[in-house]
Design a protein around this nucleic acid. Structure first.
Lengths: 223, 223
DNA sequence: TCGCAATTGTAACATATGTTACATTTTCCA
DNA sequence: TGGAAAATGTAACATATGTTACAATTGCGA
């Protein structure tokens, strides 16, 4: 097994090589290869294993009511897959896991994962951090989706980044990325930024946004 | 401390009374009371403690930038609060935690929680189950919110109600109520239902909706 | 440094939904 | 049973956002 690859994964970070080797020796797990297009795990399968992509990339395909598949998410090596479905009430995969290219996957049964929790505290904290971070990300996304207009979403986002004192913000995401977070089209986001600039509410310069009129931004968030 | 109350909490279920007593004796934690309206923890506070409501109920208040508070969620005894913010990248509360009535709260520092993980496997699994379940719930909610058009929302809603065999559903909410759930205006919902009726996809009769053309409904969910 | 790829800015046009207002039908209770 | 309130159906118009296409700019690797 390639421990160096594993060590890159957020699940195993901060674990010294030696300990990592020791840890992996003590539990049952297997490594498997899949060819491009192969289905690694099926939607609605009981989710009894933790999958970690060692090489290549996989995607989650959702099957809609008519039987067509839709790509939901890509996951690149070296990252774990569907870790939020190993525990919890609904231990079923919501998607088919499909190999994007030829891939190598490390498969760790849930029992082994639980063992690893008691064997290594850092691993446990990494795991907790991962699913917590995911839950936090999802909360944030829901909050943005619940703002109706693009202006509101921008206002919320800017004020969150700027805090109460600063008035210049450097956006840390691309416009496309931000548009995805907001659930809107990229040109629509750009247009709205432009309009708010013209109206003197903000001043936009690529990734640098300066808040000119806080009161009018606050006004946008009244509901 | 009222172990009987604690035992009711999802975090401590399946732990025999004796073990629970033993567990709680080994770690540092405190119990505090708050009066109705008191703020138990502040938004943006570093989230270093697990709060468990022993008696009474608390709510999460979000403060928007104009200073107005919005109630986000109620949490009744005996349930943990903000457990998704004890770990993860963003260890800050997103809300003020406010006492709804007089309450008693058990406060367990993060370090103690981590200790408890190694002391008791069931506790660890309960905790994992809790945040995983939350992440799963949020995923589902996002899926629903991310349907853009009213037609898609209707399609999703009808198919969920009808299942795979039935083709007539009785709506259990008023149009206004449904419109709120979808986050759209009531006349818009009525119009779209009317259009889908005219097109022969469904047959609408007040609260009774019959699915006429399943294939075209499925088509709506393609993305 | 050149050149390609990613990012950002912008415009014209299409479309879905919101808004407002009112008519019609149902519900329900005095 | 009558009559008012709630729920539903419909229409005309306003508006926000999506779509598509392309130009301008930036960044990055060969």
């Amino acid at each position: 097994m390639k421990l160096e690859i594993l060590a890159q994964s957020p699940l195993f970070k901060n674990i010294p090589q030696g300990e990592l080797a020791h840890l992996m020796n003590q539990v049952v797990c297997q490594e498997r290869s899949y060819h491009s297009g192969e289905i690694i795990a099926y939607s609605d399968d009981a989710c009894d294993n933790l999958y970690i992509v060692l090489e290549g990339s996989v995607r989650g395909d959702m099957i809609d009511f008519s039987g067509k598949t839709i790509k939901i998410e890509d996951m690149e090596a070296p990252s774990p897959v569907a870790s939020a479905f190993l525990f919890g009430q609904h231990r079923k995969l919501p998607v088919n896991i499909v190999a994007n290219k030829d891939v190598r996957i490390l498969i760790i049964p849930r029992e082994s994962v639980i063992q690893m929790f008691s064997l290594n505290k850092i691993f446990l904290e990494n795991f907790l951090n991962m699913i917590s971070t995911r839950a936090q990300f999802l909360s944030m996304k829901i909050r943005f989706l619940s703002f109706k207009t693009i202006r509101e979403k921008i206002a919320q986002y800017l004020l969150e980044l700027a805090g109460h004192d600063k008035d210049t913000v450097i956006l840390n995401r691309s416009q496309q990325n931000l548009a995805d977070l907001f659930g809107v089209a990229r040109p629509s986001l750009a247009r709205t930024l432009g309009e708010m600039d013209e109206e003197g509410i903000i001043e936009v310069n690529r990734k640098e946004v300066r808040i000119l009129d806080r009161s009018r931004i606050n006004l946008l968030l009244k509901r």
